[in-house]
Every structure is written in C-alpha cells, then in structure tokens.
Design a protein around this nucleic acid. Structure first.
Lengths: 335, 335
DNA sequence: CGATTCTTTGAAATCCATTTCACGCGAAAG
DNA sequence: CTTTCGCGTGAAATGGATTTCAAAGAATCG
C-alpha cells in the first residue's frame, strides 16, 4: 500500500504538499498535477486510520438500532446511509438487540473508534446513558425513541397523535371493546402510543379502569405480541378489537387470533407501523404508516449539521404518521 | 480521554508495561494490579484507532451485502455478528444495493480502514473484483454468491440441488406447465437455481424449448418479480405453476397473481428462500428454506480461522436447503 | 562463588497523515 | 531602492498504542 511519503518521493515534493493537494491547501497548479499523477500511478489512497488518529475523528458514524430484523429499522438505516454517503461518511450499523448492556458496549466502541457521531434508537429510556459521548463532545442524534435527558438532537414520530388517531379509527368503525398491546414500559414509543390510546378511549367515555385492564406490555417482538394477545383473549371480558403498538407484535397477535379461529375484520386489528408485505396478509391490515426512511434521513442530516459545526440550539424534529385504513378494521358487522 | 501514558504515570510504570498488562505480556502481579487499578480509576480504554494504526489491522470486519431490506441478508448478518462478537470483532454492515460501483467503494474503504477481513455477498459474479484485497493479504470470505475467481474461502447454499428439489416437488404435485422466475443473469445464485430447475424439467421430459420460453430473469426485487409474473401470465401458453428464485420476487409474483384473480394452489407457487411471515400469507407458501443465519455464522467462523493465521487450503462450505411444503403447492385440483 | 540463562522493565522506534512553524522568494507599497 | 506583505514550501511535531532492543536484576547451574 502506497503511503503519502511514497507519493511525495515520486512527485519530488514533501509529504506536506501531497496532503495539501488532497485536502485543499494552497499548492501551485504545476506541482499539484505532478502529485495527482504520482498518486494515480501508485494507486494511493490515504490511510484512514492514520488520518483518524491525527484528526481525532473518524469519518464514520455509528447507527445503533435495537432490532436489525425489523423492517422499520432497516428502512431507517437506509435513510441514514443514503444521506451519509453524500458527504463520504460511512455508517457502522450496530444491532443492540434491545439490550442495554450490548448497547453500552457499542457506545464504548464508538468512543474508542473515535467515530464522528452517533445516531441512536435507545434500548431504554431510563438506562441508556449518552452522557459519556456528550462529555467527549461527540454529536449524538436520538432517533425514534426519546432518551431521558434532552441534551441531544432528536428526530421522533408523533406517537401520541398516531396512537390517538388509530384508536379513534377503531372506535368509529363500531368496535366497542378496544384493547391495547404496547411495548416495554421503559420505552418512550411504548408510553406515547399508549398515552394516545388512553386519551382516545377516555374521550370516548370508556372508564379508565377498563382501559387499564385491557392494556398489555410486551417486548416489540413477534412472540411477545402473540402471548399478549392470548392473554387478552382469555379475559372474562375479551376485547373485540386491538391496537397493537408495533409491526412485529401485530404479526404475533394475528397468529394468536388465527389460532383461536377469530378472523378480522370481525375482530378489529390495527398495527402501529407498516407490516412488511401488509398487502399480502389476508385480510389486508390497517396500519399507522411511519416515515421510517425519512426518520433516518433527517437524523443523518441533523448529525451532519452538527459535524459541520453548526452552533444551533438543540433541535427536535417530529414527523407525522398517516393512517392507512384497510380491511382489518372494517367493523364488526362488515361481513 | 485517558491515554496509556496517563495510566503509566499514575501507576508509576512505563507505557510499555501498561500495554503488556492488557495484551498478555509478562508483568509481575504486583505491578499489574497497580496498572489495572490506575486504569480503572482513570476510566482508560485503549484508543482503537491508534492500535489499528500500529497493528496495521483494525478489529473490525466488513460485511458487504446487496440488500439490507431482504430478511435473508439481515438474518445472515445476525449470524455473522453473533460469531464475531465472541472474539471482540465488530462488524461494519455495508449495503451495496446490487450495485458494483457502490460495492467497489466499500471495498476501497475496507482497505483504507485496514479492516481485518471482509465477508461479501458479491453484487456481480463477473464484475466484483476482490483481487485488491487478496493482494494486500486481507482475508476474504464469499458468502451466498460465488465470485468468479476461486481464490477465496466461501460459504454457499446448494442452490442447484434446492432448485431441482423445488421443481420436482411442483411436478409431483401435478402441475404440468412449471415456469421459472430467476435473478439477474450475472449472479451465481440465479444461474444455479435456474440450472436446478432446468435439470428437473428435463428429467420430467419437458422439451428444453418450452422451459427456456417460460423462464424470466428479474432483479431479485419485489417489482421485478411482479413484472416477470405478469409477462408469464400473458404468454400464449401460460404456466400453471411457477418456481420463483427468491423471496422478494415471490411477493411480487403473488401480487401479480392476485391482480389476475388467480389463487394458489390452483396455480402453484414456490419460493426459494423463506418469505417473512410466510405463515400469515394466505395460502401459506411452500418454500425452500435457506440456512441464512448459519450461512453468516459459518462465514464468520471461517474468517476468524484465517485471522488466527490458519494455513489451511481454501475451503468452500456448502449448506443444504430444506423444502417446506405448504398449501400453495397442493396441486391444481386440491380444492 | 563465578558463570550463564531467564525474566522483567523502560526507552525509543514505528505505524501514517495532518498541521504548525519558519523560511525564502517575489510582488506591491513607500 | 528598501520595506512589507503574502504565498508556497518542507522539516518536524503530533496523535496513542505496540513492539523491539538492550540493560538490569534474579535465578540456576557447575
């Protein structure tokens, strides 16, 4: 591998000059040409490790997401990647598995690797600790999930509004006993979607007791949704519809319904977040569509702003959801 | 951020000794304790950039995959990650988008970042060039797709066998005009699966002309499968079943069937590769199950072997597929 | 007890790109 | 004609960990 000194020697200049040619210093045209030619001949490309060491900053950003198998996050990752690519930043994708410990390890790596910045969908609202990064002046953007301390930029979805919308839709369609399966108690997405659900139920005059008794916390995974749905179905006053707070749990819930011989839209089911190939599932699922790609793209843009040294005050961008009604919530008497 | 010298000073030893404590050199127990204590006090963790520069090798491996949104590859990625984690290697996930140019950029980065090794599902059989890595002595493992030159370790699926199996299954179930939608002409996975299909058709006595006329090449994406299926349906002698060479194209093909009012299993459809939530799709899809996770895990294990300096000759591991019959291929007269 | 071998240790070299600093030259200003 | 000023340039310092080398000290052997 050719080094900067090899190029310098070949071009008859000093390494400093070579560096200037590639990093926009002032060099006379004639010399610059010689350097560029020599570099091309030798197939030189600067060693990014040495550069990172000297610059105290790598041209890599970390993206920490809790579940790489969830299409929501892969789509988000694409958004980040597409934007990052434009400024020659590479993205390191880290799968935290909703595990605070694993997440902490990755955050340590981000520091030790001197990554330029981090975009993180936090595994836990209370226990994710971003202060070490902030202390080192590393820009951080929270995405999808709000971490506790508000000392970072953030890009969020309007979860409460989305949850309210979704629940109201179910009530409008004539379902009377709408249950809710939400995520882990720690996560902001769980809480906010749940809050939306509660608000809509309250608004509709359903006693808070009932609402509380028909709420389940699960883990945002398929199996969690499955178990929660089974529990709800075995209640003395089972629901006739359910608002499920994420896509994977919806898949599990749907499976539980199938197993009990219950078919939507007789039983209403609504997913927060697109279920992949939702249109192939029978019946087609009503979903709250999330701007996953834009979430990632905005977060990356925000991070780049920070890296460029913008002194703006901290920002929180909130993106709206869109309700996409399909057959799974057509109403109890629809067929 | 504390450096190794800070720790050395605090412990009253030289930086060399500190390094030895953390990297298994010989140090007296008493000194080692002092060093560890000082390191803990200062919150020291070695700067990985500096280490990489000195070692001429980062503790990062690159994983290049063509489509991060395809669950097959995310599952493969998890396999890689889980194994890599065990030896403290981090994985950088790079999405090449089936684009040779983008892939080339990532390969350059792998070199410039001095990654320890690379696992790659090549975007193209002919145009992906791994020689630069090999030249620098960087271990490479090809996964899922065989690159042209056989100078690297590889972990593959027995595509031909899987394709043959699948096609034979369709014929056995009584379908008589089995078409095939395969991937891009360049890819080894496309070619091998197609070869399996052809072999089975030939075996069954179907004229090669017919087989060729009912084969379509698409791009491994949903829309490509959709378009190919529409084309097949509009033929003068339309098929009564189709073998689709990957999961996403199956989703597209299924959509096309729906649009034409055709429902399996009257029309047989079989997917090479698990369709996510396949069990929710009505009717449940017969699939050739791929060991995606194991593919990744084996590749990572192989790479680790190389990194550890094993001098074994090049290896190619081939994993078998399993046919999972479900309702979508129950036969033309099944209902 | 002297000679030899092992072990432990720190100083210094190394990895490679960037950046500061000072020097020299030529042009513009006085 | 002298003095500034500016610009282009290279030598050298820098970033932080690893590793080689040589020296000092400890242990073993005859």
């Amino acid at each position: 591998m050719a080094t900067i000194s090899d190029v310098a020697r070949a071009a008859g200049v000093s390494p400093a000059t070579v560096s200037r040619v590639f990093n926009g210093g002032r060099v006379t045209a004639e010399r610059a040409d010689r350097v560029r030619k020599a570099a091309a001949d030798l197939g030189f490309s600067p060693n990014r490790v040495a550069r990172s060491l000297r610059m105290q900053r790598a041209s890599v950003i970390g993206l920490l997401i809790p579940d790489i198998e969830n299409p929501f996050f892969t789509s988000l990752a694409r958004g980040v990647e597409d934007v990052a690519q434009r400024t020659n930043l590479s993205v390191v994708l880290c799968n935290t598995d909703e595990d605070v410990e694993k997440e902490r390890r990755y955050l340590d790596i981000a520091v030790a690797e001197q990554m330029a910045g981090v975009i993180v969908a936090a595994a836990s609202r209370r226990r994710t600790d971003l202060s070490a990064l902030a202390a080192r002046g590393m820009p951080v953007v929270a995405v999808d999930r709000r971490p506790r301390a508000a000392e970072v930029d953030a890009v969020m979805v309007d979860n409460q509004h989305g949850g309210e919308d979704a629940t109201a839709h179910l009530l409008e369609r004539g379902y009377e006993r709408v249950a809710c399966i939400t995520g882990p108690a720690g996560a902001s997405t769980s809480e906010d979607r749940l809050a939306g659900y509660r608000a809509a139920m309250h608004e509709a005059g359903v006693p808070d007791d009932w609402t509380r008794a028909h709420t389940r916390h699960a883990d945002f995974r398929v199996d969690g949704g499955h178990a929660a749905m089974r529990e709800l179905l075995s209640l003395r006053t089972p629901p006739d519809a359910v608002f499920v707070a994420n896509n994977l749990m919806t898949v599990g819930a749907l499976k539980a319904l199938r197993e009990s011989g219950i078919e939507p839209p007789e039983f209403g089911i609504l997913s927060f977040g697109d279920v992949p190939w939702a249109s192939l599932v029978r019946p087609p699922l009503t979903t709250v569509q999330l701007p996953s790609y834009d979430l990632g793209a905005s977060a990356a843009a925000l991070l780049q702003d920070r890296l460029a040294g913008s002194g703006k005050p901290l920002q929180t961008v909130v993106l709206r959801t869109v309700l996409q009604p399909r057959e799974s919530t057509e109403g109890p008497g629809a067929r």
